[in-house]
């Protein structure tokens, strides 16, 4: 009888512990943002990524669509190479999308925001006709699709992280210049 009560309590205890672990995993941590089927990797070069971290969010129109998978330094190009993992379901991003590093709030975390491009595609053919005008022709190729970002593609258009120190530095020097300009005519 007493063992029964003890067993019930232990059952509740273990269930409570597991529920707590579950809550920590689902509600407190980013487990829910890990998609089950892995997405595809896209790379981009940035001149300055300061503040961006592995697992920082990648968003489009403010919606998280992936996260930063790896950050490394490219010795040849002397710039940072960022690998992003985009979730598999977002497979229609135009390949001329651009990537910028933003800050959430003034002091918040850095994240990458993607902006969709117009979408280059191979469906049209450019050619100069005899009169020297550009002629756009639909290709006969029937299975042409607008080309999208896919595993291994690179985002060419990037904009760097706004670094607060640099910004303040620029602001101060501009302010000093203005000051000087104002004082000069008074002389």
């Amino acid at each position: 009888m007493t063992t029964r009560i003890a067993e019930i309590w232990v059952g509740l205890f273990v269930a409570g512990g597991i529920a707590a672990l579950f809550m920590l995993a689902m509600k407190v941590s980013n487990l829910s943002t890990y998609s089950s089927d892995s997405g595809y990797d896209v790379t981009a070069y940035f001149e300055d990524i300061s503040g961006l971290k592995v697992r920082s969010p990648v968003t489009m129109s403010g919606v998280r669509i992936g996260r930063v998978k790896a950050i490394s330094f490219d010795k040849q190009r002397l710039s940072a190479l960022v690998t992003m993992e985009i979730e598999g379901e977002y497979d229609t991003l135009p390949d001329d999308s651009s990537a910028s590093i933003y800050t959430a709030g003034l002091l918040g975390e850095k994240y990458i925001g993607l902006e969709p491009g117009a979408g280059s595609n191979d469906c049209e053919e450019f050619s100069l006709d005899d009169s020297g005008e550009i002629k756009i022709e639909e290709t006969k190729n029937t299975d042409c699709k607008p080309s999208t970002l896919h595993q291994g593609s690179e985002i060419k258009l990037t904009q760097d992280s706004l670094v607060l120190e640099k910004l303040i530095g620029q602001f101060i020097s501009k302010f000093l210049d203005d000051d000087k300009n104002k004082k000069e005519p008074a002389k």
Partner: peptide, 19 residues
């Protein structure tokens, strides 16, 4: 409160290591 928490607490780095 919750969303900032979710974006900064990592399942592996934080929760798993804590366990």
């Amino acid at each position: 409160y919750w969303s900032q928490m979710q974006s900064s607490v990592d399942i592996y780095d934080d929760i798993y290591n804590g366990v």
